[in-house]
Design a protein around this nucleic acid. Structure first.
Lengths: 238, 238
DNA sequence: CAGTGGTCTAGACCACCGA
DNA sequence: CGGTGGTCTAGACCACTGT
């Protein structure tokens, strides 16, 4: 069995999704949940804080914990999510076309990164993502060979993330992400159905492992008319 | 004096910014911090968790807390941030031009929102934001009069957020945000220096108070060449 | 007022890491 | 092995909400 507080968290998430706790209604009080789960209050509070951070509830002092409308469900991208997870949520038939896959020296973007030395070799992967028959995303991935010794076309056509986490047992921890709009390049025109657009949305991410070492740099280029980024943001006081 | 754990948090943030704790070095252990701040371990851990959530450190079990490179400093937008806060970080001279300010019935976007009734009246504010002499952002704000009884041009030209939080003492709690790219409208051409662009980045936000009631809907329309969204995302396991 | 969530304490045991 | 962070407990006091 896993953590007690994660169990409670998952339990309540399920109950919210099953509408046993309805939006705008209140969760049982923390003390009540302590009894229900036979645990201490701090443990219950850990679970509730997770629920709050992930947008399921809102805690109000002196009143209780209010269940929010199901914000999470229509979150295409938020945090670090892979294309496969995303496509599955959208219920479409995704297709991935691998255009390039080879080892190379670090490029200009990576060469100065502190986690890298000149000797490091980088897997360079270029893929188009197709949804409903249209190539709307161009993904350029750069993976450090010291963390990912080998890589095949089959893996790239499926999901690199899944391979990293399930097979290599690597723990992705966090990512720094930038979203900007840029002009289409020749490469975009070659690998995307640009459909007359002259700009693309570019999402650049540096992805890190639990020990804070860089494992991947990604440039994800989206056709502007198909791009949507949804976020749930708490105003942090500190 | 404020919270003990917030004090510790702020203290360490300052020390990271002053380079007393350097990137890739380790923070003192939790037990050491307990002694240093004369407090219990859970309190220290609360502060460290905040640091971790905000991208200052990365905790590694069995090793310690590693100071990350200063990610937060070059974050133009992340979470809920006002234009004034943003402009100040960029060190530019911002200017706000108020084009419209009046009370009206809820529009199509708001009419079906659960926090609203047909009787509610909405402050409608249209403003251009100018940086370095160019009008690059068009902000369309809709504020619920039941939460914001009165509004003046002076307030809108300064900062609505500051007025809400400092004067009205309202606690902004969270926001649901969407980012998409759309074609420029006539209104954009009228109030923005579109400069030949035919698309804008649109950030739509629903802003909520601590009691989960809606206070504001905002449409922020950015010239694509000046838009940049930076995010620090942790992969959440649960 | 009683009940709620927010903070804090002083312990405990565990899993993990490095020497 | 000792030191680290991760989890958990059983209490305590506080600030806030409603009635």
């Amino acid at each position: 069995m896993q953590n007690k507080y994660l169990t409670i968290y998952q339990d309540i998430v399920d109950e919210i999704k099953d509408a046993k706790y309805k939006p705008d209604s209140k969760l049982p009080s923390e003390n009540a949940l302590c009894e229900q789960y036979c645990t201490s209050r701090e443990t219950v509070r850990k679970a509730l804080n997770l629920l709050s951070q992930n947008g399921y509830i809102q805690k109000v002092r002196g009143k209780g914990s209010i269940v929010l409308g199901l914000s999470k469900l229509d979150f295409p991208i938020s945090g670090v999510v892979s294309f496969k997870e995303l496509a599955q949520k959208m219920g479409d038939k995704p297709r991935t076309i691998v255009h390039q896959l080879h080892l190379d020296k670090p490029n200009d973007t990576l060469i100065n990164h502190p986690s890298l030395t000149q000797q490091d070799r980088i897997w360079e992967v270029v893929r188009s993502r197709e949804i409903n028959g249209e190539k709307i995303i161009l993904d350029k991935d750069y993976l450090l060979q010291k963390h990912v010794p080998s890589l095949t076309e089959e893996i790239c056509a499926d999901s690199i993330y899944e391979y990293l986490e399930k097979d290599l047992r690597l723990q992705i921890s966090f990512a720094k992400k930038e979203i900007v709009v840029e002009s289409v390049t020749e490469e975009d025109q070659c690998y995307l159905d640009v459909d007359g657009h002259d700009q693309v949305v570019v999402v650049r991410s540096f992805v890190y492992l639990e020990d804070t070492s860089l494992i991947q740099y990604t440039e994800s280029r989206h056709r502007t008319d198909k791009f949507r980024f949804v976020d749930f943001a708490r105003r942090h006081q500190p």
